[in-house]
Amino acid sequence: MDAAFANIVTEPTGNKPNQPDATYHWFQVHIEDLGEPGNKAEDGAVCPDMGSGNDPFAEPPVTDNVADCGCGDFYHIRIYEGVVPAFNADGEVTNINKDNLIYEVYGYINGGNFQIHPLTGFDLK
C-alpha cells in the first residue's frame, strides 16, 4: 500500500489548544502473509530481519525474492513528512519526495495473523 494522509487545520492555528499547523505525510506499508496461521516461526525457518527482502517501493522495485512460509507474518511501514502529492490523469501519484523519512518500523508479528487473501479451508477450522 502506498498512500497519503494529512492533518489539515480548518481554523487558524491557535484557535484550538494543541492544534498543530497543517502537515502532509506519505506512507508505505508492505506486508508478507507467510504460512498459516502465520503467527510465529516454525523450527528451522529462515526469517531474515528484513523479511524476504522484497521492497515494492524501492527504485527499481524488488519483488522476486521468495519468502520462507515457515516464518511469522512480516510488516514494513515507512512514513515521510512534508509530502504534497500531485496526480496524473490516471490517478497515479507523480511527485512523491521521499527525502524526509520520519518513521520506519519492520518485523515479524508474534501472536497474530495478517489475512491478505480470501479465506482458505485452514482459516475456517
Rank of each mutant, 00 (worst) to 15 (best):
M1H: 13
M1A: 15
A3V: 05
A3T: 13
A4S: 13
A4T: 13
N7R: 14
N7E: 13
N7Q: 14
I8A: 07
T10V: 15
G14M: 04
G14S: 04
N15E: 13
K16A: 06
K16M: 06
Q19G: 03
D21C: 04
D21Y: 06
D21E: 15
T23A: 15
T23R: 14
T23S: 15
Y24G: 11
Q28I: 06
V29G: 04
H30A: 09
I31G: 00
G35A: 10
G35K: 03
E36K: 05
K40W: 08
E42M: 13
D43R: 12
G44A: 12
A45S: 15
P48E: 11
M50C: 09
M50E: 14
S52K: 04
D55Q: 10
P56F: 13
E59T: 15
E59P: 02
V62G: 11
D64T: 14
D64Y: 07
N65T: 07
V66M: 11
V66I: 15
C69G: 09
C71N: 07
C71I: 07
G72R: 00
G72A: 15
D73Y: 02
D73G: 04
F74A: 01
R78W: 04
I79Y: 00
E81Y: 01
E81M: 02
E81K: 06
V83Q: 01
V84C: 08
V84P: 00
P85Y: 06
P85V: 08
F87A: 05
A89V: 10
A89D: 12
D90H: 07
G91E: 08
E92L: 13
V93E: 06
K98A: 09
K98S: 08
I102H: 02
I102P: 00
Y103I: 07
Y103R: 08
E104M: 09
E104L: 06
E104H: 10
V105L: 14
V105C: 11
Y106A: 09
G107S: 05
G107P: 00
G107W: 00
I109F: 03
G111K: 05
G111H: 05
G112H: 05
N113A: 12
L119H: 01
T120Y: 03
G121C: 00
G121P: 00
K125C: 02
